[in-house]
């Protein structure tokens, strides 16, 4: 059984139709899992359900063997699930350092060494530590966002399109950082539009279509799967 697991998840908005049906997703520590699929496939919805921003109609969310399906987002955050939204993912009026400090809000005791770790991981942030985040470039902001999310030393890190709107060079850089984060024994789940690049750094991937699991497997397998290539990778 995987460390973080969404089992047979079915959910939708209010009385509307189900957006995801019997969807299964899981991720282990030290593993990158990509969730792919066409627009409207339910990728973001699946992520919201895992986070508790949207409640389940049926199914379970399990972390470390504990069922957290009924917990609020806030309580799930306390269980070690960290999330980087696609937009508005930094405190743009605060400095870089303050962003990190707020990220460690739940941690008791000394956070200096954690901040040091983050600065090691993202050297650019050390240089800009006293700057207001609103004044940074898009790529740097994304790093602040990742840094803030890592400050609570999460066991699960969820990323919603971390490379949306950045240039290809910055995208590669960000993926490099994500690979480095994985080494800290974190389970990473990310929703991505840039499917090919995402799969190339992922250990495993899921392809969702109309809210259901369509394909899954290791990143390499999916990349080489002719059907996946034809329908999603545009090759």
């Amino acid at each position: 059984m995987a460390f973080f697991e969404g089992k047979n998840m079915t959910a939708g908005y209010d009385n509307g139709p189900d957006i995801i049906t019997s969807c299964n997703l899981n991720a282990d520590r030290g593993e990158i899992v990509a969730i792919l699929g066409p627009n409207g496939a339910g990728k973001s919805t699946a992520m919201k359900v895992l986070l508790g921003l949207l409640s389940l109609k049926s199914g379970n969310v399990i972390i470390g063997g504990e069922d957290i399906s009924k917990l609020t987002t806030q309580d799930r955050v306390k269980k070690g699930i960290s999330f980087v939204p696609q937009t508005k993912n930094v405190f743009s009026d605060l400095t870089v350092r303050e962003n990190l400090e707020v990220g460690a809000f739940l941690r008791m005791g000394n956070i200096e060494n954690v901040i040091e770790d983050i600065f090691d991981l993202f050297p650019i942030l050390y240089e800009k530590k006293s700057q207001i985040v609103g004044e940074l470039s898009g790529g740097q902001r994304q790093q602040v966002a990742l840094g803030r999310a890592l400050m609570m030393k999460p066991s699960v890190l969820m990323l919603d399109e971390p490379t949306a709107g950045v240039s290809p060079i910055v995208m590669d850089e960000l993926f490099d950082h994500i690979i480095k984060i994985k080494k800290n024994n974190v389970a990473i789940i990310m929703v991505e539009q840039n499917a090919k690049q995402a799969l190339s750094i992922s250990d495993r991937g899921y392809v969702l279509v109309t809210g259901k699991n369509k394909f899954d497997g290791s990143g390499k397998d999916l990349l080489n799967d002719p059907e996946v290539r034809r329908s999603f990778l545009g090759v």
């Binding site: 806030q74 306390k78 939204p85 405190f91 009026d93 303050e98 990220g103 809000f105 803030r148």
Partner: peptide, 23 residues
């Protein structure tokens, strides 16, 4: 102070403050 910073964070971006565990 930590509380003061969390207050500013909340004022800046409420949703993200909640995701950071701020009450």
């Amino acid at each position: 102070t930590k509380t003061g910073k969390s207050m500013r964070a909340y004022s800046d971006n409420e949703d993200l403050a909640l995701l950071s565990g701020i009450d």
